[in-house]
Amino acid sequence: MIQPAVIAAVAAVIGGVVAVSVRDSRLVALGLLLALVASPLASSPEPAALAICFRSIGALLATYLLWASARSQSIASEGSGVGAVAELAAVCAAFAVGWFVVPVKPLAGPVAAQAAGIALIALALVPLAGRDVLRVGTGAAVLTVGISLLLQAWVGPATSAQQIAMTVLLVGMVGATSLLISPIPLPSSRPVPAGPSAGDDVESDSDDLPAPPAATPARTVSKPTPAGPLHDAESRVGAVGAPPDPQVSPNQRFAPGSPRVRRLHPRDPRQ
């Protein structure tokens, strides 16, 4: 009979694969949700119900943060940097290594947790090397989940306090990702007084931002872009010929007709 820990480990790996391979950030959030919920279950003995609830609520909160930041506009990552097939092959290989190579004897947790941990760590390496904030953040979260699975396998089930700390860490990481990929309020989108007065309390995050530039013709000289499949969206936009608009968030700089980056049903930003 298949143990629940094995099912949870496999589910965590599947969630990780989905999170780092798909392009739609909403699917990324769903993949992360699966990985975050399943990872604490891949331990033996299973953690307390309260700890599982806490981890699940934390996973929902983290996913919601990512979902919310992707809801108001189209945020897409490049998907897998090396191709979904290559990702899948690497994950399978790492899972097999983790299943058959046991560096700790006796193993304090299930071997499935070790295999899943190694697979997720291997899976996170390519996104961490990318240049897209969403993918880097996703990779960091997957990496942390993988290390926590290794800890469960090698050291034993985490205590309640460690579960709480890990939950807060994952929520913080995904929250940081959602914050960093969010579009930034532009200076022109809010009322700007003609000049500050003595004693005013204006928010001045954009102190150094110049006025929005006048419309400039698209440059004909393409910006040199690195070769290879790991191009980021910005470099592709540069290659199309239009200069990067400083008023546009990097995640919005997907030029129409860009060869690989798909624009995902743009919606009107919420007022």
Binding site: R131, V133, A140
Partner: peptide, 13 residues
């Protein structure tokens, strides 16, 4: 932001 995200991930790991 990219560097900060990498730093957060690295320190956490």
């Amino acid at each position: 932001r990219l560097a900060e995200m990498r730093t957060i991930g690295l320190v956490a790991a």
